[in-house]
Structures are given as C-alpha cells and as structure tokens.
Amino acid sequence: MAHEHKLEIFRGLLKFKSNTQKIWGVLVFLTIVTAVEVALGITKPDMLTTTSLLGMKALNWIFIILTLVKAYYIAWDFMHLRDEKNALRRAIVWTPVFLVAYLAFILLVEGNYIYTVFKEGFVTWNF
C-alpha cells in the first residue's frame, strides 16, 4: 500500500495540504465539469452546433474532451494511479487506450460507409 500521496493536481498549480483535502478539491472540479457539460447540453449554443471539426460538431468534441478530463481525474486521484509506479500506470492506461482507439476507429469508419450505402445505394429501408 502506497502510504505517501502526491498532493498536486493541474501539474503542480494546485497543491493540497492533505489527501482528504485533495479528494474534496477533485470533487469540486468534477462537479464543475459536469455542470458545464449539462449547461452546454441544455442550451446547445448555435456557434458550437454549426461549426464542425473533423466531421463532428464542435459541441460533441467539447463533450468528449471534458469526459476524458473527468476520466483522468477519477483514475488518477480516486483510483490512486497518481501514486502508483510508472510501469503499472502505463500498463493500465495505454493498453485500453490503444485498443479502444483502434476499435472505435474501424467501427465508426465502417458505420459511416454503411450510412452512405443506405443513402446512395439501391437499398430501401425508410418506407
């Protein structure tokens, strides 16, 4: 059991006095991020839904990035990955990241291809 905790988040910008304080600090941060997500989801600002980046709405990119930010702090601070050895942390993080990125890439490209077949090919599905 790692008894010593690293108490800095945001690359040392914020340093907490105790582990308990750090936990509450991370909670505040995660709550703010969730609140921002929900607010954006309800208001759906026109500027973000009309601009598109790499084939997806800017708003959706913001949601995905904020999700990854939340996932980072849950894994690093709640699951104590910050306190684990580099080798363990890398084995845990990079294995799924690589496999998931690969799977998501091929399935989304394939899904998009089938969409074009449905749209332009001689297939009737909406009748």
Partner: peptide, 13 residues
C-alpha cells in the same frame, strides 16, 4: 468499450 463502440457503429449507420 466494445458495447459503446458498437453503439457508435449503429449510430453512424
């Protein structure tokens, strides 16, 4: 991730 990727696949379709 497999489930969510399958969801993404169907949604893109």
């Amino acid at each position: 991730s497999g489930f969510l990727a399958a969801y993404g696949f169907s949604r893109f379709k």
